[in-house]
Write a protein that binds this DNA or RNA. Structure first.
Lengths: 162, 162
DNA sequence: GGCCATTTAGTTGTACGCAATTGAATTGTG
DNA sequence: CACAATTCAATTGCGTACAACTAAATGGCC
């Protein structure tokens, strides 16, 4: 059939782009990002900023460290992001009195008020997926399971764990 | 139970971080990224660079435009990435003779040789997921379906489509 | 109290991802 | 041939991600 392509080994088949689940994953993640970009434009938020506000709406106020644990982000990402949210008047940052190392982040009045307008966001996003609630839940559970497996595998693989 | 929290409306429940499939998706994507970072360090590639090389190993050579279509990336992302791959000696970029606007990207000898060492990557990644082949395929199909739905929804939602 | 390991944010540097713009090359149309 | 519209890569600007580093603050230990 294709003399230039000798029968590919099983290993070579695995290198095909359309076999890479990580690629499908990233494509889906970016597709979500695109929809969020449109939906969140009204609120003046990027998608990561929206995630930060979600946590703050749930928790009221919490230190940068805790915020990073919830979102799996480190201070290198959060520090500039939070500065932009502060510049936009949506959050306030203040050193904790108990522990001067820690910085408490809390929504301002304006930031809290934004929640009202955000209530419609999940419905619009869910509609865009074309999935019903059970499918979404099922997919989410698989993904979380996948993340858990990858995280523990990363610990094993990490070279510098002497 | 919790008098400070009046019964949340259905809509408010949807704002909970742990309900956001996009978050699970992004977390999984970044977890993959972390595993790839470890596995690809030997090859001197980042994960997006690895994806580019996957396409080039499959296709041999192709213009930036086609590369971007395969990977869903635009020139703003690819141009600097390809420059780094060229600086690393893995690809060559040359203006197409037929169409001077187009730039053909092709693996160098060294880039093609790298494929040998990459053959082991998918197996190591697959092992890290803890999923078997059927589960991976099933998840990949769902994700691709999701991406398709989100892409067409984005077209509908885009404000500037007069 | 003095000392040191740890914790916490912030900063710097590198690398995407994407919108918007630029500029060169090509194509379609008269 | 002339000219407008289109195509293509590159560039610019902004916003994440994340590793590595810095510096301030804390807590345990003697």
């Amino acid at each position: 059939m294709t003399p230039t392509t000798p029968t590919p080994t099983a290993e070579e088949n695995w290198l095909r782009l359309d076999r890479q689940i990580c690629f499908s994953l990233q494509a889906a993640s970016r597709a979500f990002n695109g929809v969020y970009r449109v939906v969140l434009k009204d609120l003046g938020l990027t998608y990561p900023q929206y995630l930060v506000m979600l946590v703050l709406w749930e928790q009221g106020a919490l230190p940068v460290k805790k915020l990073g644990e919830h979102l799996r982000l480190d201070s290198g990402t959060l520090s500039p992001l939070l500065k932009r949210l502060e510049a936009a008047g949506l959050v306030r940052r203040e050193r904790s009195a108990r522990d001067e190392r820690s910085v408490e982040v809390r929504p301002t009045e304006e930031g809290a008020a934004l929640r009202e307008r955000a209530l419609q966001v999940p419905r619009r996003i869910a509609a865009a997926t074309g999935f019903d609630l059970d499918e979404i839940r099922d997919l989410r559970e698989r993904l979380d399971q996948l993340t858990g497996a990858l995280d523990s595998a990363a610990l094993d693989e990490t070279p510098g764990c002497s």
